[in-house]
Write a protein that binds this DNA or RNA. Structure first.
Lengths: 334, 334
DNA sequence: ATGAAAGCGCTAACAA
DNA sequence: TTGTTAGCGCTTTCAT
């Protein structure tokens, strides 16, 4: 299979430039010669070498994706969205996990440059100055996915996390519930803090005092760490009537911690999760959740990146996708 | 950042060949000149262009991963294992989803060749002749992950699915249970059929007749499709005392179908899942499951591939990782 | 221990 | 409409 464009040219009795033209459609080629070339390609089972092409054209048709952890359900769903649109536009994806460590993220941006990716989709917990600087040095088109740059300098696709959490808290407040807890990731996690802000704004607007003990920060957004965090909370004798969780997994942590003590939702606590991952439908009681269009977050990010890469006109560099609350059994007392 | 190796050479007052040597450590360079070169690299913030390097050396330090669907928990965990080991050996990953469609898989193998990947990790539902042929044409080192080639021609890493399912069925049989159902993916799914074989062998060995109605095939290994399949089964009035499911998600389908009818496990049915995904610990009752070392499946596959790529001696081209049954609440009647 | 020079397989001017 | 030719930025002989 190590044929070159020269072999095809010879076989078809034309010059390599002509072969290149029919391959890329970059210029008009007489139908007759085009047919000859295609026949030669077919006969030799020729496949163009994308690396050589990338070197010559300075475009690799490859985009880099940097995210904390693929084995996280949310990221995996986002990634699937990215990949589908990338395929649609003939791009390939180089994937790397950063574990949300800034040092590693910065390093990865560099190696993505080495790989000559045409662009980058970046998912992280926080966009630091250091990272923005690295983007600029690398001169790579970047789209932030599921986060925003605080300064708004970098194109991004996300939801309005603050108001989404506001809505979630409001959902409970409108039922006359007063003891509402919040559980999120670490305080360094931008999305967690945005959601916490929304939660706090809703409570304040309702004239409720904020209680520190009702604000929980787990080590990350995942189930396992959340379970410990909630366990300690309950162990200390604290209780909440309702919980706004910053991820479905964290909502599940609360649910199971309660359950393992003989309680359940919605009887002993009302739960609202975040993200509408498949998980939220798979547990019983199924979880009320703030639906984030997970797949679309990835798909729209990738679409935005293709626009950036092709200099297509762009309406909005900061895209906010809609969110909504999906009511299920975890908040339904009938 | 678009400096070349020539810029570095000029800055350091040496030839480009020398720069290449210190970059790759391919030959001895005097400490003094090495230092000069490194200073120049530092000063210019030079990064080698991996595409040019790939063209010249014919090795891209990139491997392709073709799998059905990243948003599937099992695949995402495997992928994480692949990625970690790849990083360790300085490889990057080009990821593509095949949706388990053979036509697309064959096409993807071709585009992976175009991308000049050094090797391939392939995860699929079935390894057809057509696919094996494509591997051979592409002349790519391949490792099959979580499946095997029926002919054993292609290196692979998996568990012994047949005996794992045998063990699962045996687990129930040893408790004196006779009405044991099996639920898996479609009959075209190789892993499903291997597991079904194990299940059937166990029943036969125990002198139990196989009942067709107790063998369920869902459209895939995921929760949603399984739910429909189980619903129809229960709707038809069928019941089982215990269920061997070919994935944790399918076990969950059965659990929720029963639950939505007011039943539960382990009271009304005993459930054993497959894969020990995080999911199995996140639901209540938590699922007894046949633990497949998911992450390791990916990690070991990637390690095997690096051996293939570096002509390291290989003990075994068909690696079978150990499985085990992890007992949890879904089979525990106390 | 270092340099000169020939490719790797393609794209993209520039000619014709 | 087609061919010629010069790179793209590196690795890798082959000299020295």
């Amino acid at each position: 299979m190590n044929k070159t464009i020269y072999d095809v040219a010879r076989e078809a009795g034309v010059s390599m430039a002509t072969v290149s033209r029919v391959l890329n459609g970059t210029a008009v080629v007489k139908d007759e010669t085009k047919a000859k070339v295609q026949a030669a390609i077919e006969k030799l089972a020729y496949r163009p070498n994308a690396v050589a092409r990338g070197l010559a054209s300075k475009r690799t048709k490859t985009i880099g994706v940097i995210l904390p952890d693929v084995s996280d359900l949310f990221h995996a769903e986002v990634l699937r969205g990215i990949e589908d649109i990338a395929t649609m536009y003939q791009y390939h994806i180089i994937l790397t996990n950063s574990d949300a460590r800034e040092e590693r993220e910065i390093d990865l941006i560099g190696t993505m440059w080495e790989k000559q990716v045409d662009g980058l989709i970046f998912i992280s917990e926080q966009i630091t100055k250091e990272i923005v600087k690295t983007f600029e040095q690398a001169q790579l088109p970047v789209v932030l996915c599921a986060t925003e740059d605080p300064e708004g300098r970098i194109p991004s696709v996300s939801i309005d996390n603050e108001s989404a959490a506001f809505d979630a808290a409001q959902f409970f407040l409108s039922k006359g519930i007063s003891s509402i807890a919040f559980i999120g990731g670490p305080t360094s996690h931008r999305v967690t803090m945005e959601r916490r802000s929304g939660y706090e704004r809703a409570l304040s607007a309702a004239g409720q005092p904020l209680q520190d003990t009702l604000i929980l920060h787990a080590p990350d957004m995942k189930y396992e760490g959340g379970l410990d965090t909630v366990d300690r909370f309950l162990q200390a004798g604290h209780r909440a009537e309702a919980v706004v969780a910053a991820s479905d997994e964290l909502a599940l942590s609360y649910l199971n911690a309660i359950r393992d003590r003989g309680g359940n939702a919605p009887d002993d606590v009302l739960l609202i999760g975040f993200d509408n991952t498949r998980l939220s439908k798979m547990v019983r009681p199924d979880l009320t959740t703030v639906a984030q269009p997970t797949y679309d977050l990835g798909a729209v990010s990738m679409r935005l990146l293709t626009k950036l890469l092709n200099d297509e006109p762009i309406d909005d560099y900061t895209v906010r996708l809609p969110h909504s609350i999906i009511e299920r059994a975890s908040t339904d007392r009938g």
